[in-house]
Write a protein that binds this DNA or RNA. Structure first.
Lengths: 224, 224
DNA sequence: CGGGCCCTGACAACACCCTGACAGCCGCCG
DNA sequence: CGGCGGCTGTCAGGGTGTTGTCAGGGCCCG
């Protein structure tokens, strides 16, 4: 879930933002001062920060600078001041967007979506690790104990389906349908063969698998 | 130099923006219609787009969608409409920022800087090296063991796509689509041919490639 | 006309996929 | 207790598709 840190000293606004964000299924944490905001961000790195410039303890641009010192998290600045110079200062300090109060909640949410699209949109690493093996779904790469493992297309496809459903039991029919397509639901021998290949290439002891498990009569399960 | 594409149908505004941007050492190209903007962006990919929503030939969000179909270039939208719904539509269509007219030039420039900080920061790779070869993406130049290597346009295009995705497996369809465009998805023989040319020109032993690798049945991978 | 450049077709070598067969394991039943 | 059938893991062989490479022809441009 996407985590938003909202920094504002007005309880009203804080509450309104919290309600709206939570209703959109964001995870919201709040801070009322700059110092608190920096602590909260460090303790629990957010995916995006909404920051009111008018804080009681420190200047808004200082907060921006304090965050920028160690993180690239997108920062959306709220301010009551329409002065152009303030906007320029905040943006040049490292903020990503600047919205003046009063603002429409739907516009704010749209701007948040636009920012998140940029930072998360570059897809967070769909990389799964188990034992001495790590699977990078984006790069189509499998590394075991530092060395790259070569997989054939079918092996990869099967592994991908299993890894995308960690801990879940996948019936043979499901796996055959997903990897081989309709018409191969009966080729159970095939599945055994490729599961064996994967075990040989990925398990430390192929004869005693730990991650690629079989449930007799039911199907197979990937356990991270 | 940073390249800005400014799309607006008001000659005045176009001139004002052009003067201010060029004074800040941006490289500016302009377009007065949506169709022209799409052509210009395709011919000469910009680093950032400033787009007026009020164009004579097409709706602004269509232009955004047309760009988003193939590029992640940051888009800053200008509009005379302060209506909140318009902002939401444009941002959700894929725009990154929305500024209402009239606007302060310094604010616009600060917003441009903020957008460029994000996208260029992420872009990196002006030059990539592997083995005895170095590829300068900006200058369109390839040097091998100190000597310049001559590449044909298609060879270069293919190499560029591979180098921009280091370590990642690129499917044949992806490569064909990116290099030859839609309609050539089936011309797999072509891809083999040009991959061979690149290997012959860049690999030390073309028959035993180390950096331009094939994964049978899946695609090709560039390994630095 | 000559020179690049791009595309097509052909072929050998290779990698991959499927099939069939067999042994081990387990639970069931005679 | 022993035989039996179902399920699983493993191995080897033949068929099929893919890849690398070469040669040849069309196109554009100087």
């Amino acid at each position: 879930m996407t985590r938003v840190l909202v920094v504002d000293d007005e309880p009203q606004l804080l509450r309104a933002l919290g309600i709206n964000l939570r209703a959109r299924r964001y995870e919201v944490t709040t801070a009322a001062t700059g110092a608190e905001a920096l602590r909260a961000a460090a303790a629990h790195p957010p995916d995006v920060v909404v920051l009111d410039l008018g804080l009681p303890d420190m200047d808004g641009t200082e907060v921006v600078a304090g965050l920028r010192g160690w993180t690239d998290v997108p920062i959306l600045v709220l301010s009551g001041r329409t002065d152009s110079a303030d906007k320029v200062d905040a943006l040049d300090a490292g903020a990503d967007d600047y919205v003046t109060k009063p603002f429409g909640m739907d516009e704010l949410l749209a701007r948040l979506r636009a920012m998140l699209r940029r930072s998360l949109g570059r897809e967070e690493l769909p990389s799964v690790s188990f034992g001495e093996v790590s699977v990078d779904l984006a790069a189509h790469k499998v590394v075991r104990a530092g060395e790259e493992v070569r997989l054939t297309p079918t092996e990869w496809h099967l592994l991908e389906v299993l890894v995308r459903n960690p801990g879940r039991l996948m019936s043979q029919k499901q796996l055959l349908l997903e990897v081989w397509g309709p018409g191969y639901e009966t080729a159970r021998g095939n599945l055994r063969l490729y599961m064996g290949q994967l075990r040989k290439k990925l398990e430390t002891d192929a004869s005693r698998p730990v991650h690629l498990l079989n449930e007799p009569g039911m199907g197979y399960r990937f356990e991270p």
